[in-house]
Structure formats: C-alpha cells, structure tokens
Amino acid sequence: MDEECDYLFKAVLIGDSGVGKSNMLSRFAKDEFRLDSKPTIGVEFAYRNIRVKDKLIKAQIWDTAGQERFRAITSSYYRGALGALLVYDITRRSSYESVGRWLVELREFGGEDMVVILVGNKCDLGESREVEEEEGKEFAETEGLCFMETSALKNLNVEQVFLQMITKILEITSQRSLEAKMDEKPINLLNGKEIHVADDDDEVTATKQAPCCY
C-alpha cells in the first residue's frame, strides 16, 4: 500500500554533458549504472522515498541536459527546486571550469534558500584526474557550497550526497515552517491536510502529507 509522505522535495542535477548526472540519478533511484548511457535530451526525472529522522520524504530529482542547445529549456526547471547537485567530472578540467557559469545560472533562476552541493564525479578514475579534490573543496568553501566526490560506477558516496542534500533541505523547510507558525502565518488546507506553500509565483515544493508511491 502507498504510504503518505511528510514532504515532497524537488531538486535538480546540473553540470556539463557527460559528467555522469544520469548515472548518479540511476544509482540513487534504482541502484543501476549504464555504461552505454546516452546524453539526456531536455529534462528527465525520477522519484525515490527516503526517510530522514522521523520524516518520510518523496525526493523528486530532475536530471537536466548539459548541452548548450538545451540551456534555454532547462532554465525553467530550476523553478521550485529546493536543492541542486552541481556536478563536474574530475577527469575533465573543462567541466570543472564550467562550474562557475552553472552556479551563476543556478543563483539567477533558483531560490535564495536552495541547498547546493558541488560534486566531483568519477573519483574512481584517480589515475586520469585533472582536478584535485582540494581544489574542489576550496572553491566550494569560497562560494558557500557543500562538497563531495562521488563515483556512480563504483557507487561511492552517491547515496550520501543525495541524503546530505535532502537532510539540509528538511532542516531549512522545518525551520521556515516553525517561523511561519510563530508568526501565525496562515496555512492553506487541502482536504483537511496541511499544505506548505511557496510564494505566490512559485509552485508548491514542500507538501505535507503528499501521497507517496514506490
């Protein structure tokens, strides 16, 4: 039977084409890895239910295309996202050099409270490394981001990086909910169930008691 989730969180995967975003999502959502993975066209997404402390969260993860010709399409998908994994390939310095440009776009279209984690993927290919781990850490610290290296192929830190993002989103959402109650802010009700809503021009991104399907 379906369970009822406490929250629905939307997050996005961004970064250059070929850095391994799709396989990271496949690992997280289905524990799968495809060596013949093809570039994402437009946007794809997957769901996974995950329990954090006493809350059951439905994570809706959007995998955005990294190719330039899809940038105008994908920018609209930042709307309503509460978190983002900004991914580069540690064996391709050009993908790391693009991180600053992606971050500008993310901050332009994303919300101010968005949780962003910088991810150096393919850390299993250490012999081909072009970006040192310390370099990624220092950039993340400078920009106020979290940082982690992962390997979708070896399934190293993939679960952890998604869980870290979702946990931080939950902390921020819970704090905002508490502040709203303290301010006696009106909360919309839908069929007797509590709904946390964003600003009027944003979509609903954190829903209380949403139907949760596996």
Rank of each mutant, 00 (worst) to 15 (best):
A198F: 06
R69C: 00
D124E: 11
Y96T: 01
D54Y: 07
S128P: 04
R176C: 10
V12K: 04
V197L: 11
K38Q: 09
R69T: 06
Y214W: 12
K58W: 07
S22Q: 00
I90V: 13
G120H: 04
K10C: 06
S128N: 09
G100D: 12
S151I: 01
V104Y: 13
I57Q: 09
Q67G: 04
A210M: 07
A180R: 11
V115H: 05
I50S: 10
G120W: 05
K53G: 08
K58E: 00
D113Q: 14
I41P: 14
E135G: 02
G110N: 04
S76W: 03
G15M: 03
E194F: 00
E112P: 13
L35V: 09
G144V: 07
E32D: 07
R79M: 03
L56W: 05
D183L: 14
N121L: 13
I73Q: 15
L13C: 12
R101I: 01
I41Y: 03
E133T: 15
E133F: 04
F109R: 15
S151M: 08
Y214Q: 07
F70G: 12
G18H: 03
G18E: 04
L35K: 08
K21S: 01
Q60R: 04
I57H: 07
E105V: 13
D201T: 08
A59Q: 00
S22D: 00
G144T: 11
Q164K: 12
E112F: 04
K55R: 12
I195Q: 07
